[in-house]
């Protein structure tokens, strides 16, 4: 049922494999991600999601196969230039501990040599977007923030240089459910408004269903199924995908029952 998207792919994986020693982290990977798409990678721990993401902006290189960015072989592109056009939000956040929140957010524009006045405006704007009021947070150090606040700064830092592509590795995992939903919804709005292409990695199927245009389910370094949330729900490829979608389905059902009962009394 999965069909190639209509728009030209901005990212394409062609028979990509990544081998560490004699274990393959991913193999036989074929993905096409369309411009403007919100693409989610999901699968159990160690299935190769982070590895896949890191190869897009050449933080690591494929052992075989090709990755195309806008039709150009990524291995022929300048890695530094490529990374400056792609925002990256890490599983481990990775804020620079010696720089203030403001300086962390400003880093990419600074590297690109933006005029200082533009950087100041941009930083304030971004902190508003991730809902960290600049007057309170601009001069704080990362160590003085909660995990969730740090992740917001990480998001703002990734967005700073107006990238066209965002790579996000479990960006909301450390947040409490309320802020997680908030920030996720916020981010989906940002994605739409800025016309971004997003590849997001998560463990959480509910989150995937709520955010994704398309989802790829991975297992042991291989793609199990790719499709829209609808397609996955209606036609899970195997028991593994079925077990993944079971949890959100049961939750939704139980909630619907509760709401029905509440409405009845």
């Amino acid at each position: 049922m999965a069909h190639a998207p209509a728009a030209a792919p901005i990212i394409a994986f062609q028979e990509v494999a990544k081998v560490y020693g004699d274990t393959a982290a991913v193999r036989g990977l074929n993905l096409t991600i369309a411009t403007g798409e919100f693409y989610v990678l999901i699968g159990p721990s160690g299935c190769g999601k982070s590895t896949t993401l890191h190869m897009v902006n050449r933080l690591s290189e494929p052992s075989s196969g090709r990755i195309l960015i806008d039709g150009a072989d990524a291995s022929t592109l300048n890695p530094v230039g490529l990374r400056r056009e792609i925002g990256f939000v890490f599983q481990a956040v990775g804020l620079f501990p010696h720089l203030t929140v403001g300086e962390n957010v400003a880093i990419a524009p600074r590297l690109l040599g933006w005029p200082p006045a533009d950087i100041v405006t941009r930083v304030a704007e971004l902190l508003e977007i991730v809902r960290l009021p600049p007057q309170a947070y601009l001069h704080r150090m990362p160590a003085e923030l909660s995990g969730g606040q740090q992740q917001r700064v990480g998001l703002a830092r990734a967005l700073a240089a107006r990238p066209r592509i965002m790579l996000m590795d479990e960006p909301f995992a450390a947040l409490d459910p309320l802020t997680r939903d908030d920030l996720a919804a916020d981010y989906r709005a940002i994605h739409d408004r800025l016309g971004l292409t997003t590849v997001l990695v998560t463990h959480d199927m509910t989150e995937a269903f709520l955010l994704a245009d398309r989802i790829t389910v991975m297992h042991s370094g291989e793609v199990v199924q790719t499709g829209s949330p609808q397609e996955l729900l209606n036609a899970p490829a195997d028991d593994f995908v079925r077990s993944l979608i079971d949890t959100p389905r049961r939750r939704a059902k139980r909630l619907a029952e509760l709401m029905h009962v509440g409405a009845g009394t």
Binding site: N57, L59, V80, G81, R83, R84, F88, F90, A92, V93, G94, L95, F96, P97, H98, I107, A108, L111, L112, R157, A161
Partner: peptide
């Protein structure tokens, strides 16, 4: 911390910039 060095690369620092702006200060 390797995670911080990876972050420096990911925001588009050259290895020289990573050294001057991140590794040496830390």
């Amino acid at each position: 911390d390797p995670a911080i060095k990876t972050a420096a690369r990911a925001v588009g620092m050259t290895s020289w910039q990573s050294l001057l702006l991140v590794e040496l200060p830390l």
